[in-house]
């Protein structure tokens, strides 16, 4: 237990410190790198709580894919650091207000849950500690595909719409641009792709 407490405080401290560095780092690329560290230590916190499936998903989806795209975009952009710093004081009150709201909500949720016990009212098995014979992934799958199947499908639909929207917005067919048609290239044979001619001297061949 003591070991778990040490691990928890270590990872929680790293998460908060790297979260602070995300906003305070001067270089945007460093910001993204700190963000990745924050994601990673959050995944560590999930593991401590016995939710190893969620932890791995967090690493696969956020660290492995989303943050790579962040990094990709931030590296490509030519960011003007001085312009970024401007207006910091102007937006400060609004930012503090939102941060205050979030902190208050979290405190409320945390105290309520702590008051009545985390898994008391939940229908299915939540953490692997509750039912040791069912693994974490199985427990999530059972709940996700039975009780919450409509929400799950709706979330999938929203993502699909977003994906199609992104494709529609960026896909442009320019007229006059010759595109590569792989099928045509693969189906080419010597008969269709080659013409044997035997031109007489000084005549050449007509196309």
């Amino acid at each position: 237990m003591a070991l778990q407490a040490i691990a928890f405080y270590l990872m929680a401290a790293v998460t908060i410190a790297s979260g602070f560095c995300v906003v305070s780092a001067r270089n945007p690329v460093h910001s993204v790198l700190w963000l990745i560290l924050a994601f990673f230590s959050a995944a560590g916190l999930f593991v401590l709580m016995g939710a190893e499936f969620l932890a791995m998903l967090l690493v696969v989806v956020y660290v492995g894919a989303v943050a790579v795209l962040f990094l990709f975009v931030v590296m490509m952009l030519d960011v003007d650091f001085a312009a970024l710093r401007q207006g910091f004081a102007r937006y400060m009150p609004l930012g503090l207000l939102i941060a205050g709201f979030l902190a208050a909500e979290m405190v409320v949720v945390a105290t309520t849950v702590a008051g009545r016990g985390a898994a008391k009212d939940s229908a299915g098995p939540m953490a692997s500690g509750a039912t040791p014979d069912v693994t974490n992934a199985e427990a999530i799958g059972r709940v996700l595909y039975t009780d919450y199947v409509y929400f799950f499908q709706a979330a999938g639909l929203v993502l699909l719409v977003a994906m199609i929207g992104a494709i529609v917005l960026t896909l442009r067919h320019k007229p006059g641009v010759r595109r590569q048609v792989i099928m045509d290239q693969v189906l080419r044979t010597p008969k269709t792709g080659m013409k044997l001619a035997n031109p007489k001297p000084g005549q050449g061949i007509d196309q």
């Binding site: 190893e52 499936f53 791995m56 690493v59 696969v60 492995g64 894919a65 692997s128 974490n136 992934a137």
Partner: peptide
């Protein structure tokens, strides 16, 4: 229990 996901996560990083 999630060994294969762990491998996938590490290789994606």
């Amino acid at each position: 229990n999630v060994g294969i996901l762990y491998l996938f996560a590490v290789s994606s990083m």
